[in-house]
Simulated scan of single mutants.
Amino acid sequence: MVENCMEGYNNCITCMFAYGKTGSRKTHTMLGDIEGGTRRHSVNCGMTQRILEHLFSRIQKEKEVRRDEKLKFTCKCSFLEIYNEQILDLLDPSSNNLQIREDSKKGVYVENLKEVEVSNARDVIQQLIQICNTFIFALGP
């Protein structure tokens, strides 16, 4: 996925499905120690952070190798949840029941899904931590 992204394909880097029984540690495999994951290369980080670190490392190497070309990389992240056939924007919880659309130029996309520009793995993980904290706060004690 990272290599396709580096080739210029619009890619959903961490769009993976973790399937299994409740309690089988799917979330831990994907996220790991997310709070400690803001440190680079934490031993307890999950697949998501490892992939993001690999992506941004590849971007940095590409910039260095091709510095004469003055390449510009733009990375944006969005988070959504599909539950009971409803699409929810996790960066903007007030948005609900978003629609999947298809366009000849954009391809398949989710209409009105909020995107945040990010420049490194830490930015993405911080967004994810904020989402987690929002949901924990919403659930209450």
Score class of each variant (00 low, 15 high):
residue 133 N to T: 02
residue 74 T to C: 00
residue 124 V to E: 02
residue 136 I to V: 11
residue 78 S to Q: 03
residue 96 N to C: 05
residue 89 D to Q: 07
residue 123 D to I: 05
residue 46 G to D: 12
residue 123 D to T: 02
residue 99 Q to T: 09
residue 98 L to D: 01
residue 103 D to L: 02
residue 93 P to Q: 10
residue 132 C to A: 09
residue 91 L to E: 00
residue 137 F to T: 15
residue 43 V to N: 10
residue 53 E to H: 03
residue 59 I to C: 12
residue 37 G to E: 03
residue 109 Y to V: 03
residue 94 S to C: 11
residue 110 V to Q: 10
residue 83 Y to E: 07
residue 65 V to I: 14
residue 39 R to E: 12
residue 75 C to R: 03
residue 90 L to S: 02
residue 115 E to S: 06
residue 83 Y to F: 15
residue 127 Q to E: 05
residue 92 D to G: 10
residue 91 L to Y: 03
residue 135 F to N: 13
residue 78 S to T: 08
residue 42 S to T: 05
residue 113 L to Q: 00
residue 89 D to I: 12
residue 59 I to H: 03
residue 119 S to Y: 00
residue 63 K to V: 06
residue 130 Q to A: 10
residue 105 K to A: 15
residue 73 F to S: 04
residue 73 F to D: 09
residue 134 T to N: 12
residue 38 T to K: 01
residue 104 S to N: 10
residue 35 E to N: 13
residue 123 D to G: 06
residue 84 N to E: 07
residue 99 Q to C: 09
residue 94 S to R: 12
residue 37 G to V: 05
residue 101 R to Q: 13
residue 136 I to G: 02
residue 41 H to R: 15
residue 91 L to R: 00
residue 100 I to L: 15
residue 52 L to E: 08
residue 87 I to R: 05
residue 42 S to R: 11
residue 79 F to S: 11
residue 78 S to C: 14
residue 86 Q to C: 14
residue 49 Q to S: 09
residue 86 Q to N: 06
residue 41 H to V: 01
residue 73 F to T: 07
residue 74 T to W: 04
residue 49 Q to F: 06
residue 95 S to Q: 13
residue 95 S to C: 07
residue 107 G to Q: 15
residue 47 M to L: 11
residue 43 V to I: 03
residue 134 T to M: 08
residue 108 V to W: 04
residue 68 D to A: 14
residue 67 R to L: 10
residue 60 Q to T: 13
residue 80 L to H: 04
residue 121 A to K: 00
residue 135 F to E: 09
residue 110 V to S: 05
residue 57 S to T: 15
residue 61 K to M: 06
residue 73 F to L: 08
residue 129 I to L: 14
residue 140 G to S: 07
residue 56 F to E: 03
residue 62 E to I: 06
residue 135 F to I: 05
residue 47 M to D: 04
residue 58 R to A: 14
residue 85 E to Q: 11
residue 55 L to P: 09
residue 129 I to M: 01
residue 77 C to P: 03
residue 64 E to W: 00
residue 95 S to F: 07
residue 120 N to Y: 09
residue 103 D to E: 06
residue 92 D to W: 04
residue 128 L to T: 09
residue 83 Y to Q: 07
residue 64 E to D: 08
residue 77 C to N: 02
residue 74 T to L: 08
residue 59 I to V: 15
residue 112 N to L: 00
residue 111 E to M: 13
residue 74 T to P: 06
residue 61 K to L: 14
residue 44 N to T: 04
residue 84 N to M: 10
residue 137 F to G: 08
residue 111 E to N: 11
residue 51 I to Q: 13
residue 76 K to S: 10
residue 92 D to Y: 00
residue 54 H to L: 11
residue 84 N to T: 04
residue 105 K to S: 15
residue 98 L to C: 04
residue 130 Q to D: 15
residue 128 L to I: 11
residue 117 E to Y: 01
residue 80 L to Q: 00
residue 51 I to R: 14
residue 56 F to I: 13
residue 122 R to Q: 12
residue 100 I to K: 14
residue 97 N to H: 14
residue 80 L to N: 02
residue 136 I to E: 00
residue 61 K to F: 07
residue 63 K to L: 10
residue 120 N to T: 03
residue 87 I to M: 14
